[in-house]
Nucleic acid binder design. Structure first.
Length: 565
RNA sequence: CGGGGUGUAGCGCAGUCCGGUUAGCGCACCUGGUUUGGGACCAGGGGGCCGGGGGUUCGAAUCCCUCCACCCCGACCA
């Protein structure tokens, strides 16, 4: 492809709206252009990369027996009503205004299940893996970070159909391996974490994450291989335990202590002997929760312990109503009303503790959780902090932001039951099909690659994703016809040898061409200039390392073949 | 949806407080010439409903009201 005829509008300046490297570079290198908030056009260069990603995904999906579908983006709303997801999706789902009854599909579980119901009637018809690579529509409340969170985006989603939970395990495992292969092939450093399945329903799920400050998820990871979403992450911190002194309970005045830090400072109490109290309303019933010192309550863990997502912190009036005191003076002793009390594992059977007296301005010391309280249940309720020991190795955990690239779930029978997708087993008995669901954000793969592979000059593509194999640059062609002739000859030879080449034949100054080439970031640059050509030579440059060498024209093909070997 | 910010040429911005020439600068673009191995130079030129609407005023990019768009933080999020 001659660059003079190729639409790749590069930008010298960084657009003001872009704040993260991948977004800035995708705009500057002429890969995409925004159309509206969260909506992007892929320009020819960007589309080439996107197709590379798609083909890698397609190959891996096919290799585990996946069969590719083309499914409608326009869906009848009835089918979504049958699974209750019109309500669950809420404003995220786009509704067609001038055609009642049609919605834009935000995902495709329903449609896949619909077709499975029609035709997958026997245990002999399974297992199946069905997938699609298509545009999804989600009315995101806040599109951001370029293509990382858009209102329309391409997703590869796959669905497995099985007759047994063991079969589902196998399908799930196949996807797990395929996903690792996909991201490795793309050259992306990633990790996977166990996750909660959220609105998707189902049981086990794992997310494939890329560490990035631009990420929207938070994970705790260690070099030993531990990785977990902060919602479920744990550490190897030891319980505060018991002290030898077993003194009687003692109330003391703490008029100016509203926080744990106040207590520590004013009364010289060690932080780990302070028990912090939090009151939450779970389905509108009060729960008193004890945490160590300044630990942070993890609402996700609380939700799963209490078995409801409907939790909120209690307000002052409720605190006084149920405990007798306001913030800062709540504790396990002398509660005004009998309410459920749970505590974090780290406080299990602790004594010598300080906590509120349920009377404003007073605390108790020497509290023995065994002797003085009626705490029945201890759970992991706290949010892990950076630096705590890894549960596997004991080394310090890192808490990082991460971008979710892919998610695999064991869906189970949620959709097959809702839509009546049943099959007959070998004994003629009817069962719901057991399903899995497996997604990858295609644009995210592209953006994450760029986040991980760029320098101050621009993008650095590598072989699997690069839009062209080589950037052939003719220096000052108008003045030196022999340069143009040589470059055209090399171009023809490379194309004949099967390489995709972008040939910069534009009448631009060398500086502009070099900087554009580094910005666009093709892995292999071939520079044809009068200087070297006099000796029958050209220069090649490795974009990644910046290494250059002067070689003879005749060895260009061998050189590039070596480079891509 | 809450908080903050920004809308002036294709891009990046100044001008807005404190109203007053023909709205400016850099890059990009067009013409001619000189240049040419890391974003050249000279000369000439084109391009603006100053986000939209309404108001105040002799006069509005500038003041007031209102709507819209975009970005950031939060909420939310397979």
């Amino acid at each position: 492809m001659k660059q003079s005829e190729f639409f790749v509008p590069t930008l010298k300046e960084t657009p003001a709206d872009a704040t993260i490297p991948s977004h800035q570079l995708m705009l500057r290198a002429g890969l995409v252009r925004p159309l509206a908030s969260g909506i992007f056009s892929f320009l020819p260069m960007g589309f080439r990369v996107l197709n590379k990603v798609i083909n890698i995904i397609r190959d891996e999906m096919n290799s585990i027996g996946g069969q590719e579908f083309l499914l409608p983006a326009l869906n009848p709303i009835e089918i979504w009503e049958q699974t209750g997801r019109v309500e669950a999706m809420g404003d995220v789902m786009f509704h067609i205004k001038n055609r009642e009854g049609l919605v834009l599909a935000p995902t495709h579980e329903e449609i896949i299940t619909y077709h499975a119901r029609q035709h997958v009637k026997s245990y002999r018809d399974m297992p199946q893996i069905w997938y699609q690579i298509q545009t999804k529509f989600r009315n995101e409340p806040r599109p951001k970070s370029g293509v990382l969170r858009g209102r329309q985006f391409i997703m590869k989603d796959a669905y497995s159909l099985d007759t047994s939970w063991e079969g589902l395990d196998l399908s799930y495992e196949k996807h797990y391996e395929a996903y690792k292969a996909i991201f490795n092939k793309c050259g992306i450093k990633f990790f996977d974490v166990g996750a909660s399945s959220g609105a998707m329903g189902g049981s086990k799920s794992q997310e494939f994450m890329v560490e990035s400050d631009s990420g929207e998820d938070t994970c705790a990871i260690s070099d030993a291989g531990y990785a977990a979403n902060i919602e479920v992450a744990t550490s190897n911190l030891q319980p505060v335990g018991r002290i030898d002194q077993d003194l009687p309970l003692e109330k003391f005045a703490t008029p100016n202590a509203k926080t744990i830090d106040d207590l520590i400072e004013q009364y010289n109490i060690p932080e780990h002997r302070c028990a912090k109290s939090v009151v939450y309303m779970a389905d509108e019933s009060p729960v008193l929760i004890f945490m160590r010192g300044n630990d942070e309550l993890n609402e996700s863990k609380l939700q799963s312990v209490l078995g409801t997502a409907n939790v909120r912190a209690a307000v002052s009036e409720e605190l006084i109503q149920f405990t007798g005191a306001d913030h800062g003076s709540i504790g396990p002793i002398n509660l005004k009303s009998k309410i459920k009390i749970i505590a974090d594992n780290l406080l299990k059977d602790a004594n010598g503790m300080v906590s509120g007296a349920n009377e404003d301005g007073f605390h108790y010391k020497n509290i023995d959780f065994v002797r003085d309280t009626s705490i029945s249940d201890y759970h992991d309720l706290r949010t892990v902090q950076a630096g705590e020991p890894c549960p596997i190795s004991g080394q310090a955990l890192r808490v990082v932001k991460a971008i979710e690239l892919g998610h695999i779930f064991k869906l189970g029978t949620k959709y097959s039951v809702a839509l009546g997708a049943n099959y007959l087993d070998s004994e003629g008995k009817e069962h719901p099909i057991i399903m899995g669901s497996y997604g990858i954000g295609v644009e995210r793969v592209m953006a994450c690659y760029i986040e991980q592979h760029h320098d101050e000059k621009g993008i650095i593509w590598s072989s699997p994703l690069t839009p062209f194999h080589a950037h052939l640059i003719g220096i000052n062609e108008p003045k030196f016809p022999e340069v143009k002739a040589a470059a055209e000859g090399i171009y023809a030879d490379l194309v004949k040898a099967g390489f995709d080449v972008l040939y910069d034949d534009r009448d631009e100054s060398p500086g502009i061409k070099f900087n554009d080439a580094d910005l666009i970031g093709l892995p292999f640059q071939i520079i044809v200039g009068n200087k070297n050509l006099k000796d029958g030579n050209i220069e090649v440059k490795d974009r990644q390392t910046g290494d250059r060498k002067v070689i003879s024209i005749s060895s260009v093909i061998t050189e590039i073949q070596e480079f891509y070997k």
